[in-house]
Write a protein that binds this DNA or RNA. Structure first.
Lengths: 160, 160
DNA sequence: TATAACTCCGACTCTTTCGGTCGTATTTAG
DNA sequence: CTAAATACGACCGAAAGAGTCGGAGTTATA
């Protein structure tokens, strides 16, 4: 549960790959797919959606492929995921149109909406350029787990 | 995407309902289901899973039903969700056994694992007793959205 | 200029998971 | 013993997922 789809995974991998190879010109979908062992036609479709929202630029013909349109420091993981999988809502109650459809007494809607916003912010603050294998760059969580019995007045999650 | 299942939604609603009616004795699955307009047999199956992990206690026979086993202040949303939907992993790469199965060059595994931990902590800090319709109790996010072009050196997400 | 190679693009099918239903057995109060 | 409630398993339809196929467009090269 609560996992993002393989498409989003592939999209993030491809964006990172393009960021690392931006100096070598465009990368074809086939090249990226073979580099990570994923079906290249599935990844092509993902890159198409990224091109449609303007995150990458597609280039037809020989030696064509995809290039980033922005500095990878300015592209968040949230943008990539949202482009591929659509808007994210943690709860099934909150739809695009706003409210619960089946029960007007859904009393947990507001707290979960807050959680949803929190997750969005976490993903918005992760940039493609940070997607390296250096975990110390990203310090997402700066707190220990809860201990039942004490109420911590203020907890912190620091990002970057 | 990134939404938790309806079962988890129902489970959280039921837990909150039990927390509010703990002084009236046990609540039957049918009562809870009718209160929120959800099929009572689907909710019964959810409550069974919650009973199996010990979050609620079931009582057979007439005037039976379900009761919480702990103080609702000590039950986190994470426990409920995990009991219903299983362990959560934000990325498909990270399985229960640990690693990517298809590609050993999945370079985004570690950053996403950090994101995953962050989300877990957010959910662990939301208690059933906090699931009221008073949004000011829970202040999950304390920042505005990003503006492409400025780099905020340190961002904060404050919890409770 | 014309051909051919290489790329992107959109529609389609198949599989898996989710949500919900039904039926039967078990337990308990009256 | 009967009524009311949970416990448990199997089953079915719907929906979203992952992947595949052929076609359209573009550029290099002879």
């Amino acid at each position: 549960m609560l996992k993002l789809t393989k498409k989003a995974d592939y999209g993030l991998m491809a964006m990172k790959h393009l960021a690392e190879h931006s100096n070598h010109g465009a990368c074809s979908a086939k090249d990226v797919a073979e580099a990570y062992g994923i079906p290249h036609e599935a990844l092509a479709k993902i890159l198409q959606r990224l091109a449609k929202v303007g995150l990458v630029r597609s280039q037809h013909g020989m030696n064509g492929g995809y290039t980033l349109t922005r500095d990878p420091k300015m592209i968040s993981a949230f943008e990539v995921i949202k482009a591929i999988d659509g808007p994210l809502f943690i709860t099934s109650c909150v739809t695009v149109r706003g409210e619960c459809d089946q029960s007007d007494r859904c009393t947990i809607r507001e707290p979960l909406r807050k959680v949803n916003e929190s997750i969005e912010q976490v993903l918005k603050n992760i940039k493609i350029s940070q997607m390296k294998e250096e975990p110390e760059i990203i310090d997402l969580v700066k707190q220990e787990e809860k201990k039942p019995g004490d109420r911590k007045p203020a907890e912190l999650i620091t990002i970057s």
